[in-house]
Design a binder for these strands. Sequence first.
DNA 1: CCCCAGGGCCCGT
DNA 2: ACGGGCCATGGG
Length: 281
Amino acid sequence: MNTIHKIYTTTQLPVAFCYPNEFFSVKDTLECGQVFRYYDLGDGYYGVFSGSHYAQLHEEGNQVVVQTHDKDYFFNYFALDVDYGELVKNISAISPFMREVANFGKGIRILRQDSFETLFSFIISSNNNIKRIQQIVERLCEGAGQQTPFGYAFPTSEDFDCVADEFFSTLGVGYRDKFLLYAARNANKDALEKLKTPTPTSTARQQLQSFLGVGPKVADCVLLFGLEHGDVFPVDTWMKKVYHEYFETGLPDGAISEHFCNLFGENAGLCQQYLFYFQRN
DNA sequence: CCCCAGGGCCCGT
DNA sequence: ACGGGCCATGGG
């Protein structure tokens, strides 16, 4: 455990709740590429989630133990009101292959993350790898976010108002600096929140793609992880491999997402996460 | 030197 | 509308 970990885990937080781990793997849920600000402690994890919400998680026996002062927030954040057993059953009925894939990744839960943070995080994610995305997001928080007892919060719109344009060129994000600058100057959380249901997914996607650096894939990730639109299928390089290895091979890349959306319907996003996890492992 | 990473932009057809 | 070149950066 390094120094940073010691600092942020010294305080014993109250156990907010426990939850069966059959359909809630802490490791798989945090490491499947939907969230970037978590830290592996060896026998658990901690993180500053969705702005400035701090929690520590570990598994004991067949239970996930969540320690935080933000009990209600994290019950919703981990979508613990959703019956993933039922979702896995439904997805398993699609095909023998999807049964295998869903069972392999059944510990994954799709998080209800902050829309503002998700937008910036996935602008950074394009043509990038998860390790470097994490490092860049961390630098963004250290440089513009508020300091809290448990680490730096993700910057708010007001925090971005206080940094110079040139700040975004100091993050090591390469050509994405101008995308982040545009989002910092034009995005606001209230407008993003209005893109949740009942706004149709297609309308919300169109709005998101008006941001620089936000194309179909990044928009789908924001819709799925930050705006609770489950009927999307983000297509990245991994999903192209999945399509050509395990499904048909006739469609151009641009048509793969719609193909899988038609196949998987309202649970397309979860199917995509299961396939992503399956392909990467 | 190469290729790849949770892609998107911009330009030609 | 579509396809290909290009784009910063770091790791393998």
